[in-house]
């Protein structure tokens, strides 16, 4: 009894917090633009902006809310992610894009104080439910991080590590997997002569492609990218983007990015998050050319965020 009431309290706190920044935002909007009346879109526009036609969804987010301790980071997010497409999550810093991404492979579990409401379904199975083995989930949904984080081991061992975890130990098999993964990650030609050198000797862009090779070595179905290019120069960035385009035929990819041009270049669908809420979700082209909601338009045109 007391338990449920305290949960209710927390939810209430969350709602109050939700209301506050919204008010602050509209205050800011008033000061900034004269035509602020349009920032609150009509019900119908909102429905249209949030429910695009998604073919063949592989991940389905259902009314997901998330709290870090007392602070709510995600508010009632629902979206489906299309198979073998690139979906990008955009929005200003702290809007919850990375948090949402980390729900897909339950990396948020590592933080002790997280509480989650709602659910995420991966091919119909509940990701957050008690029946999901998180280690299997993370094998099927791989991840590439913002800061390239190869293990302080050889290039070969980095790529082979995931397979070793799955019990593949024959050198011949591993050799094949390592080569195939490095080729798929467009890194093979650069490193084939120094596979047993320490991975930390690679350049930043190479390290990030190595991390992609490491992720695809275990043949996941989905790859999550958490701002994969934020520490890279434009040339390295373009190589990663090209790589992502070639990977679409085999993998579903979700990318969190700060870089709007990048979202426009690589993704098929784009979701715009703001202060923990999903504001708009739809095909990238439509979103960038003709955003349904005012706030999206403001963000894309650089008027806030």
């Amino acid at each position: 009894m007391t338990k449920s009431s305290s949960a209710g309290d927390q939810a209430a706190v969350g709602r109050a917090e939700l209301a506050a920044p919204r008010a602050a935002l509209s205050e800011a909007g008033k000061r900034r633009t004269d035509s602020d009346a349009g920032i609150d879109d009509s019900e119908e526009t909102i429905r249209e902006a949030l429910h695009p036609d998604i073919h063949d969804p592989i991940i389905d987010v259902a009314s997901l809310s998330l709290w870090y301790g007392e602070k709510q980071a995600l508010f009632d997010i629902s979206m489906a992610i299309s198979k073998n497409k690139v979906t990008s999550l955009i929005g200003p810093s702290g809007c919850g894009k990375s948090t949402l991404l980390r729900c897909f492979n339950r990396l948020n579990d590592l933080i002790g104080t997280v509480r989650i409401d709602g659910d995420v379904f991966f091919e119909g199975e509940s990701i957050l439910g008690p029946d999901m083995d998180v280690h299997l989930l993370r094998k099927r949904i791989g991840m590439v991080f913002q800061k390239s984080n190869p293990f302080p081991k050889s290039i070969y061992e980095n790529v082979a590590y995931g397979c070793r975890l799955q019990g593949i130990s024959s050198t011949a098999e591993l050799d094949l997997i390592v080569e195939r993964s490095l080729r798929d990650a467009a890194l093979w030609d650069e490193v084939k002569d120094r596979l047993h050198d320490n991975a930390l000797g690679l350049s930043g862009g190479q390290q990030q492609r190595l991390c992609i090779a490491r992720a695809i070595a275990v043949e996941p179905e989905v790859i999550l990218y958490d701002e994969p290019c934020s520490a890279l120069d434009p040339i390295a960035t373009s190589r990663i983007e090209a790589l992502m385009r070639t990977l679409t035929k085999d993998y579903t990819q979700v990318i969190v990015t700060h870089n709007l041009q990048q979202a426009g270049r690589v993704s098929d669908y784009t979701a715009f998050l703001y202060l923990g809420e999903l504001i708009e979700y739809g095909p990238t082209e439509q979103m960038f050319v003709d955003p349904r909601r005012k706030r999206t338009e403001y963000y894309l045109t650089g008027r806030f965020g």
Partner: peptide
Amino acid sequence: VPPSIREAAYGLGATPMQVIQHH
């Protein structure tokens, strides 16, 4: 130990014991 190394290993599906032992 930088958390990024833990995340990398967990992200590949390593169990906590493997993460501790290997990294």
